[in-house]
Amino acid sequence: MSNGKTGRKALSWVWLVLGLAYFFIPLISTFLFSLKGKKGVLSFVAYQHVFADPNFLKTFTFSLQMSIYTILVGLILIVPTAIWINLKLPKVKPLIELFSLMPFVIPPVVLAFGLIKSYARPPLALVSSPALLVAGYVVISFPYIYRSIDTGLTSIDLKVLTEAAQSLGAGWGSILFRVILPNLRTALLSAIFLTFATVIGELTLAVLLAWPAFGPYMAHVGRDLAYEPAALAILSFMMTWGSISIIQILSRGIPGSRSNVGGLH
């Protein structure tokens, strides 16, 4: 019995090491490659080039701005919708879940041409407005926002908490801001950072709608330069992991998360 247990444990370690190697070897290789900007020595010169390029900051700032708008519009549209569906229209939920998969099924290029075709002429000539780009980003982010919020809503007993608040005299404003949203903090943070990561790296919509975003900049650098794209890839990776770490840190302090001692009867 003991031999079998040891064997299983060893096998688990082998799988873990293989998994970590699969994940880290390309990352380490990319990182090492990004340090070879100067012949013969390892240096951060590629990173210096990236930061020195004015387009880096310009495109990054633009995408950051767009991501903030996308997050705001997305949350304002999707959070109340998800709450309402969970509370009042649970039968519609499968339909909304199907819709939320559409951005994965329909290529962004189709969405971009659809937007251009629909909003190129008056009275809705929005092609030159960043609002159309934000609208497109909201569509692309819909699955991430909706599914994060829906998971959060499923983890709390939404209906009963709402009814408990109602029985104590609370109106919808109080229920939303004092009861539901504070209990959705982790879900909201997930939605925010997933949207941020999606918008920051998005290429197709930005290219086809002709906006100077970070995605097209990365593609441009990747086409024309050697070491800088590797540096940018590492920077993007760090941003993503930074976002995930922030979610972890912020959700650790959330009251009501089940990490503490049980009480006595």
């Binding site: 908490l161 009814e163 608040a165 109602q166 029985s167 109106g171 004092r178 209990n183 009251p255 009501g256």
Partner: peptide
């Protein structure tokens, strides 16, 4: 509406607000 009835309600699964 329930919020205007001033009737106290106790639920089967407690329904305490987890964030409070």
């Amino acid at each position: 509406p329930p919020a205007k009835r001033n009737l106290g309600m106790v639920f089967q699964n407690y329904a305490l607000f987890p964030n409070m």
